[in-house]
């Protein structure tokens, strides 16, 4: 499987999934091992415990809206989420996801063409999104090269580490 291809089981969420839902303020400075257990719990109490490595989130519009807390994508990554595909992504969430090395993709209409538990394949380079369960393919926005470079390095800190040591 090419490095830019992600394939996994779908978890489906609606519009305006906020950083307060992804990373509740009450656990703002809690360690990752505790913090991640509360990711999305106010909208799906079993998600954090049942998410498997490689699972993919399919979201509605404005996914990740709200605060600048990078713990939002970090929590998702920590419970095993391999990619977030949404109708639209909140600006800071998108930036933070790339910064922590969590692949994200915008694909119009994606929310209504997947059901929970179906299998999705996402090509980050071309933006192609495939429903492996139904066989249908949809075209999302491919990530700009600047962002893919950071993602493939494993996040912006890895870019910086290389720079400090270079």
């Amino acid at each position: 499987m090419p490095e830019t291809l992600v394939q996994g089981r779908v978890w489906r969420f609606g519009n305006d999934i906020s950083t307060d839902v992804l990373s509740p303020g009450t656990y703002a400075v809690a360690p990752l091992e505790i913090r991640k257990l509360h990711v999305l719990e106010s909208v799906n109490p079993v998600f954090a415990s049942e998410c498997q490595p490689g699972d993919v989130i399919v979201g509605g519009s404005n996914f990740g809206c709200g605060s600048s807390r990078e713990t939002a994508p970090e929590n998702l990554k920590a419970v095993g989420v391999a990619c977030v595909v949404a109708e639209s992504l909140a600006r800071i969430f998108m930036r933070n996801a790339v910064a922590v090395g969590l692949p994200v993709l915008v694909c119009e209409g994606v929310h209504d063409v997947f059901e929970e538990g179906q299998v999705i394949a996402v090509d980050l380079a071309t933006g192609a999104v495939t429903n492996r369960t139904t066989g249908d393919t949809y075209q999302g926005d491919s990530l700009p090269e600047e962002m893919r470079t950071i993602l493939s390095a494993g996040g912006i800190l890895e870019v910086l580490r290389t720079r400090a040591n270079g």
Binding site: S67, S68, R69, I92, R95, N96, A99, G155, I156, L157
Partner: peptide, 26 residues
């Protein structure tokens, strides 16, 4: 700023915007 409400500084004509912690390290 490591805070989404950094946009506040636009009141003074400044380009204020929120970023995450890794971007701030950079």
């Amino acid at each position: 700023g490591t805070d989404s409400h950094t946009t506040t500084y636009g009141a003074l004509g400044a380009g204020g915007t929120g970023i995450g912690t890794s971007d701030m390290v950079y």
